[in-house]
Design a protein around this nucleic acid. Structure first.
Lengths: 246, 246
DNA sequence: CGGAGCCTTCGGCGCGCATCGAAGCATTGG
DNA sequence: CCAATGCTTCGATGCGCGCCGAAGGCTCCG
């Protein structure tokens, strides 16, 4: 009985602004040091330390010592998924400023979600994969079909290696901007890596932005049939997420 | 732009044990009164009231006045989705025991709601009554038409007696399985009684379950045109907690 | 109408915890 | 060895808010 308290613990962890800022910063997928997270959250190192151990004790974060640094990262993809879902909720319930910030549109277009692609492009991609029968979308479960495997291998993915990993191959992740499922899991991560390797896109350092080159966008659209709309540039710069404001 | 604080607000709402209990209680889908939720959360009515307005202000709950009760329900499927995702997280991080409620499907199909029928069967029945012009459904108000009166009398209902009662003849009542209105009021209660009398169905003692006999289900479907799908059995007893009562 | 049930608002109490200053370990580098 | 950096622990402070008792508003019922 009493499942309430359990989810309350998760909620309470996310419920503090400082911790929420840390978590959203870590949504970018890369591990950050305690100091960076403190700055990100706008609190002192002591306070951040307290928050971080709390988050780790709660199972949301993993920690790795390296030299005199302590690197923190989300403990898993599911954490990222829940956070994204909560962002979506916050957006829908309208208690968030709908005021679109300067770099919002680009984020909405293509960004990294933990280790895979998110945003309109990602949603469109999955949509296309499903339409062509490469992926089957049941309730909450995604499966790669045999023809889908062929397709992925043609893209240059090493499927056997992916299948060998303990990690689930396909997973759905709710996208907060589009409010639709996009592809996560080992396959989602591998695809994003492939896009980088092909020179189609690259990370904007310090942000969650994924910016596609014109050539990459063209290739992406040709293969995945995602609607055009050029997002083109990203102003970059900026701090690390959370803030921005005009 | 502060996306952090937004998810922090959601988190904080879920983060309080009392509120978390309310939310998980509502996760079953059915709307509950403020009092029931107070009991569910183990707090007094005043405290619950405060929590509920907070949850409503936060956009997680919707509220509907019905008589001297105030029914609260999750504001949408996405809220339920986020809550379940959080429960999943809590389960994974090992800070909880998972409890799966395997008694739900039958309840979803047909159950008693106070004194009338609820569940898919009930929603389908009202749908049919409206489609055939026996009942007119305005916003929040249901009216029995003359042809509807004839129909009810053909079923063996004593309409004059029902009309004589102080109790409103027709009333709408929220149902969670289809998130639609089903028929309550004196007519709804009389219909359920009639089903019992006809031997179509009977209560499972100690639960809210209403189990139809095969013959009764057939007759019901013939008359009200509700989609087939045999509900077959009802498992075990279950606790019954939350709700019910008279 | 008056009484009862359901719920909300108001006021005050008290705990929890986020926060920061200062000090204590650890690691790196000279 | 000492100094510097990165992070943690300790202690104290203050605010937020969860909680309930009491009182008021609605609604239903006889």
């Amino acid at each position: 009985m009493k499942v309430g308290p359990d989810i309350a613990m998760i909620g309470a962890l996310v419920g503090d602004p400082a911790r929420a800022n840390m978590l959203t910063a870590l949504l970018a997928g890369q591990a950050l040091t305690a100091g960076e997270l403190a700055r990100e959250a706008g609190v002192t190192a002591q306070t951040a330390s307290s928050h971080l151990s709390r988050l780790e004790a709660g199972g949301l974060l993993t920690q790795r010592k390296q030299g005199r640094h302590r690197y923190y990262a989300l403990s898993g993809e599911d954490v990222a998924g829940v956070l994204e879902a909560m962002m979506g909720l916050a957006a829908r319930t309208g208690h968030t400023r709908v005021r679109t910030g300067p770099k919002e549109p680009a984020l909405r277009r293509a960004r990294v979600c933990y280790d895979h692609l998110a945003g309109e492009l990602a949603v469109g991609m999955l949509e296309h994969l499903v339409a062509r029968g490469f992926v089957i979308e049941a309730t909450d479960a995604l499966t790669l079909t045999p023809t889908g495997e062929t397709f992925m291998q043609a893209l240059g993915l090493d499927l056997p290696a992916l299948a060998a990993a303990r990690r689930p191959l396909c997973k759905g992740c709710l996208d907060w901007s589009v409010r639709r499922t996009h592809l996560a899991g080992a396959l989602g991560a591998a695809l994003l890596d492939r896009f980088y390797a092909l020179g189609w896109a690259r990370r904007e350092p310090g942000t969650r932005l994924v910016s596609f080159t014109p050539r990459g966008l063209g290739a992406f659209r040709e293969i995945f049939g995602v609607a055009p709309q050029n997002d083109a540039e990203t102003d970059s710069g900026g701090d690390g997420e959370t803030e921005a404001t005009a």
